[in-house]
Design a protein around this nucleic acid. Structure first.
Length: 220
DNA sequence: GAGTTGATCACT
DNA sequence: GTGATCAACTCT
């Protein structure tokens, strides 16, 4: 299976439009243990400084969140709960601290390498990366890749050589941001309807047809 | 419900 | 500078 990296120009669009488009793409890591890649099936957008759920809420850059304030298309990777990493795509023009958390992907290449990195021996192979912490674990992503430009190796977004079958996108509230006040309810999580690699089952606010997606992308 | 580490913040 | 708090998670 071959993949074509996106260009830096790809990231020069509104965050919500990018969130939808991530579901067309593959995340590739040319790791020391081998190439691993998977189709992105779930993501969440975070739009500081007004989003109480975002690390960039309030608008004051910190050492951790500095990369979110830079130009789009770079990786924002942070340690969560002392044990897991989460991988984000920085979006929004420089100065606008937006990012999209990639929550789940469908393993496509290097499943053997992914299996060797997981501790849970009984997990189904299509759920090896069903969750942001597991995703980073099986792809071998850690803080060393923070701020990496995501249009070049060893870590990049890519288009598959052939398009995915037609699919629907659902959107709903984001996961585990109970501290975020009313932002908790904002429908800023996006996922491929019915896909087995999606991390958490939750009722969508609404389901959109491919035509809806196209229309929304053009308006963005 | 526990595990585990470091960023962040409210204080000296 | 120092200490307390707690997190965009995962598995038991």
């Amino acid at each position: 299976m071959k993949f074509e990296p996106v260009t830096s120009r790809f990231f020069e669009q509104a965050t919500e439009s990018l969130a939808y488009q991530l579901l067309d793409l593959v995340l590739v890591h040319e790791s020391p243990e081998g190439l691993v890649a998977g189709r992105i099936v779930e993501c969440e957008m975070y739009q500081g400084p007004d989003d109480k759920g975002a690390h960039s809420f309030g608008g004051k850059p910190t050492p951790r969140t500095a990369v979110m304030y830079g130009p789009p298309g770079h990786a924002y990777i942070y340690l969560i709960y002392g044990m897991y990493y989460c991988f984000n795509v920085v979006t929004g023009e420089a100065g606008l601290p937006h990012a999209i958390l990639v929550r789940a992907l469908e393993p496509l290449v290097g499943v053997d390498v992914m299996l060797s990195r997981t501790r849970n021996k009984s997990v189904a192979s299509n759920r090896l990366a069903a969750g942001p912490g597991k995703l980073c674990q099986v792809l071998g992503i850690d803080r060393r890749l923070n701020a990496h430009a995501l249009w070049r190796p060893p870590l990049y977004l890519a288009r598959p050589m052939s398009r995915w079958p037609t699919y629907q996108v659902a959107r709903g509230p984001r996961i585990n941001i109970g501290y975020a006040g009313e932002a908790q309810a904002w429908p800023w999580r996006f996922w491929v309807v019915g896909h087995p690699a999606v991390s958490v089952k939750a009722p969508p606010v609404r389901v959109e047809s491919p035509a809806d997606r196209t229309e929304e992308g053009e308006h963005a």
